[in-house]
Amino acid sequence: MNRLTVSPSPHVHSGDSVKKNMYGVIIALVPALAASLYYFGLGAAIVTITAVLSCVFFEWAIQKFLLKTEATIMDGSAALTGLLLAFNMPSNLPIWIIIIGSLVAIGIGKMSFGGLGNNPFNPALVGRIFLLISFPVQMTLWPKPIASQAHYLDAETGATPLSIMKEGLANGESVSSLMNHVDMPSIRELFFGLSGGSAGEVAAAALLIGLIFMLIRKIITWHIPVAVIGSIAVFTGILNLVSPEQFAGPLFHLLTGGVMLGAIFMATDYVSSPMANKGMIIYGIGIGVITVVIRVFGAYPEGVSFAILIMNGFVPLIDKYVKPKRFGEVAKPAKA
């Protein structure tokens, strides 16, 4: 007979694993990846492959040579960081910049804090923001969709809807005239991703499919995406009602830039988001509000990445003060 195993209860496990969750998110990103390959073709492929491979390599190298710990690259978290980093970059970014971004994302954003589970900030965003500040020109040259299918560095570039809006409004033009601007895609085109922008952020439809997949597989809960999207919609809606010619409407804001990618995939990063449902909603609203403030009143046309990083910083505080609702905390009055 075998020796009996003795362990404390419970004696069964759900079979869930870190790997399953990480690969689940990667699967959820497949529609968006397909969309980015369709719109940006060669460039998107090169950026994605470079970012994923270099992130995985850096994690492996740091664990092997610096930390001398067991390599955990197979859990999929490094590949996921790479994929998200690629989605947050223009598809005509030179390879060397992508590699620097990956090194910052993995080396500074993740491993310097102790690896998976300990990073206070979303590593992909750390990489992205680092690049945005270090290489502002390269990071804001956006290839035109479809037209750049067969191009990489030589892709024809154009403005993003957000920058058209930002510059137009600064020049005193009205929202309605800007919405009819030659280069401005229609709301429908925005929904399906026919607009300039980072490789993976343009196709809202594809990202929403990913959200539905993750909700069904219970990889994430609805709280963060709904809070981010809802608060942006409400906030921009109010501004739009107050002065329709000065502030663009909620649909425009939701479908442009990184809102969908941010709300669905970046803000919901397990490690850098709060634990309690209530906290998640506060965190989501914070991201939404900061995003709109940066977009409408700030210097940058886009603010999702900054908003998420700022709120990442608040997570420990939120976790300390916002606790899940405890059983019996508010004893209900007798009804029976």
């Binding site: 978290s77 300990n118 397990y270 490690v271 988001s273 634990m275 309690a276 449902n277 899940p324 405890r326």
Partner: peptide, 19 residues
């Protein structure tokens, strides 16, 4: 056993609303 990834699933399933 792996590192905690702060997925908050334990918080979601706790019937007593603990962390």
């Amino acid at each position: 056993m792996e590192a905690c990834i702060r997925c908050s699933k334990c918080v979601t399933v706790c019937p007593m609303g603990l962390s």
